[in-house]
């Protein structure tokens, strides 16, 4: 019980610290903006640890953060192999193929007004569907290994990417297009000098949405069959063995992979679309 009391005390202390920081004189500085969520995160983890220990919650319901960390540290080779299988082979290759194909398709669609008017509603419709459901079909077609996971990812990222890219390529004003006409610019000149750069914020929006979709697709596809390696495989088998510390360690890997992937794309975006109002400092 004393541990539960300690948890309450930690919570109160952490919150009080954040109240002081957030309402203090330096609330707008970058250091405080970083510190406050970090303190909050650390507080949550500490409270979690104390409460689980204090109430003696069984492992099969919720392991403590320290157990998860220990499992993480001792299982690094397994986690790494799962990461390579699911993220590098499945998600990344599918992401590259899917986004690349969608971009090429967007360029093709963009040349024809008819195609655009026909494909955009269809694409919008498909983007809202539960596409992960195609996983069993694709696993059947492409086998249990990463190829089927990459295929699921391709299908998942294709349409969100396509609609963003097509919308982006339209994102020029009549004036800008007229200007290109006064220069007697050809189609590809107008494309590379005006429309592609103007589309970049939209394209990156699609790329960012797709990072999460890629991981979801790769992990969920493994629930329908996989070799004995992979994040989704590990999660489903560890759940079956009630090894929840392993499940949490794997979720930690997924979270790290997801946010780093997203962060990397966002960083590239910063470099490419530095001129966009949302990116200017």
């Amino acid at each position: 019980m004393s541990l539960v009391a300690l948890a309450l005390a930690i919570w109160a202390a952490g919150w009080a610290m954040n109240v002081r920081l957030a309402t203090g004189a330096h609330a707008e500085t970058a250091a405080v903006r970083l510190a406050v969520p970090l303190i909050f995160g650390v507080t949550v983890v500490l409270v979690w640890e104390c409460v689980v220990r204090g109430l003696q919650v069984p492992l099969v319901i919720l392991p403590t953060p320290s157990m998860i960390a220990a499992r993480f540290a001792t299982s690094l080779p397994i986690l790494w192999a799962d990461f390579v299988q699911t993220f590098v082979k499945g998600a990344l290759s599918g992401y590259a193929i899917g986004c690349g194909a969608a971009l090429l398709a967007a360029v093709a669609v963009d040349r024809s007004d008819f195609l655009r008017r026909g494909l955009l509603p269809v694409g919008n419709f498909i983007a809202a569907l539960p596409i992960v459901g195609t996983a069993p079909i694709l696993v059947m077609w492409f086998g249990f290994d990463w190829h089927s996971k990459a295929a699921v990812v391709v299908v998942m990222v294709f349409f969100p990417m396509l609609i963003n890219a097509v919308a982006g390529l339209r994102e020029t004003t009549a004036m800008q297009r007229d200007l290109m006409r006064t220069y007697a610019a050809g189609y590809w000149q107008g494309f590379f000098k005006l429309r592609l750069p103007a589309a970049m914020p939209f394209i990156f929006n699609g790329l960012k949405i797709s990072t999460t979709l890629a991981l979801i697709g790769a992990i969920v596809a493994e629930f329908f069959g996989s070799p004995t390696v992979g994040m989704g495989f590990r999660i489903s088998t560890s759940v079956g063995q009630l090894a929840l510390d392993m499940v949490w360690a794997e979720i930690l890997v997924a979270a790290l992979a997801g946010s780093l992937f997203y962060g990397a794309v966002a960083l590239i975006e910063r470099g490419v679309t530095f001129w966009h109002p949302s990116q200017r400092k």
């Binding site: 954040n18 969520p37 909050f40 999660i235 759940v239 979720i251 979270a255 946010s259 997203y262």
Partner: peptide, 25 residues
């Protein structure tokens, strides 16, 4: 303000991770 600064960054980060992995558990 405190909630904003404490929770909001985590809510945003959570959008980038495949939380669906939690489902089986």
């Amino acid at each position: 303000r405190v909630m904003d600064m404490s929770v909001m960054p985590w809510a945003i980060v959570s959008q980038t991770i495949p939380i669906i992995a939690l489902a089986p558990m």
